[in-house]
Simulated assay, not measured.
Amino acid sequence: MPPITVTPFTSPMPVATPPPGMELFQLPTGSYVTRAALAFRGGRWSDRREFASTAVLVRHPAGDLLIDAGFGANAAQHIRTLPAFRRARHRLGATARQQLDAAGYDHRRLLGIVLTHSHWDHVSGLDSLAAPVWTAPGERAHAGRAKDDRVFSRVTDDHEVREYSFDGPAHLGFSASRDVHGDGSVVIVPAAGHTPGSVVVFVTVPSGRRFAFIGDLTWQLEGITRQAERPLLLRALADSDPAGVRRDLARVIALADEVHLVPAHDARAYEGIPHLTPATTGPTS
């Protein structure tokens, strides 16, 4: 397989006007162990990696969002429903709900949970959250067809699931967009490939710093720094459209000098994003 071809992104960055008081927090909910050789092409079998499962809280005066939900209160049960080869050793921490409650968070502010995709380690925490679940077109149907990962169906039985559309223009190399607040601070783009409804969520904070929460386009930062895809067997097992993943991974790599890229499962990528504490849950306006 030839190296990924990356075309430098040379267009101006899109205008974003995040309001004062907008903030970003990480809510790590645990991790699981795998081998680097299974995570990215060229990884070593002797290199053990902790795969993070982290929710991200985006606080905005017009209403807050969670990006993914991490491990839930019933994560141990969810793991038992998976095929044996996917039951790696897991370390379960405080759920997103527990962390929000411990910080005194007002759940009425939560507009919804935006899923980068529907795999179990991104949705398990929905079992203890009450906000609507936001999915891209096709993702709910894909999750309903899945035979080896039924967790999404279990945890959304009592949730409102909202399927949104991409009614905005091309954004940072992606063909369409959804500007959640209309100010460019949170923009969702379609990135079908890992699953048919996978997305990337771009977030710009008041300092001007830009983040891209890229879900599982790559599992580890080496996918970006080495331009290394998943190994061939894992691409075949994990991705509904490996060519689409390759295309969109190239798109985000092209942004690496301007945007802080956050693969969902690499804890190193969350460094610098603060944790939620009682001191950080005051009004945003």
Rank of each mutant, 00 (worst) to 15 (best):
residue 14 P to E: 08
residue 73 A to H: 12
residue 168 G to W: 00
residue 255 L to A: 09
residue 64 D to I: 04
residue 161 V to K: 06
residue 50 E to Y: 09
residue 281 T to L: 03
residue 4 I to D: 10
residue 262 V to E: 02
residue 4 I to A: 07
residue 89 R to N: 01
residue 77 Q to V: 03
residue 51 F to E: 01
residue 82 L to V: 05
residue 126 L to H: 11
residue 198 S to D: 07
residue 201 V to P: 06
residue 111 L to D: 03
residue 181 H to V: 04
residue 85 F to N: 07
residue 42 G to A: 10
residue 142 H to Y: 15
residue 254 A to N: 04
residue 135 T to G: 03
residue 31 S to F: 13
residue 250 A to Q: 05
residue 133 V to K: 05
residue 268 R to I: 04
residue 126 L to V: 02
residue 115 L to E: 02
residue 132 P to E: 07
residue 218 T to Q: 02
residue 234 L to R: 14
residue 160 E to G: 03
residue 193 G to I: 01
residue 38 L to P: 01
residue 18 P to F: 11
residue 6 V to D: 04
residue 282 G to R: 04
residue 21 G to V: 06
residue 52 A to Q: 07
residue 88 A to F: 14
residue 135 T to V: 15
residue 86 R to Y: 12
residue 250 A to G: 13
residue 63 G to V: 10
residue 205 V to W: 03
residue 249 L to W: 00
residue 119 H to Y: 13
residue 254 A to L: 04
residue 34 T to S: 15
residue 96 A to R: 10
residue 249 L to R: 02
residue 77 Q to M: 12
residue 131 A to S: 13
residue 67 I to K: 08
residue 282 G to H: 05
residue 117 H to M: 03
residue 9 F to L: 06
residue 78 H to G: 12
residue 10 T to R: 10
residue 123 V to F: 11
residue 27 L to Q: 04
residue 197 G to Y: 09
residue 165 S to P: 00
residue 121 D to H: 15
residue 142 H to M: 08
residue 30 G to D: 04
residue 146 A to Q: 11
residue 207 S to T: 13
residue 44 R to F: 09
residue 50 E to R: 13
residue 169 P to C: 11
residue 200 V to H: 08
residue 60 H to V: 01
residue 64 D to N: 09
residue 204 T to M: 07
residue 161 V to Y: 05
residue 122 H to Q: 12
residue 73 A to C: 07
residue 248 D to P: 01
residue 55 A to Y: 03
residue 90 H to K: 05
residue 196 P to E: 08
residue 207 S to F: 06
residue 132 P to H: 14
residue 275 H to K: 02
residue 265 H to A: 11
residue 187 V to G: 06
residue 212 A to M: 03
residue 219 W to L: 13
residue 149 D to S: 06
residue 77 Q to S: 15
residue 234 L to P: 00
residue 87 R to P: 00
residue 74 N to M: 12
residue 159 H to V: 10
residue 233 L to Y: 10
residue 258 E to F: 15
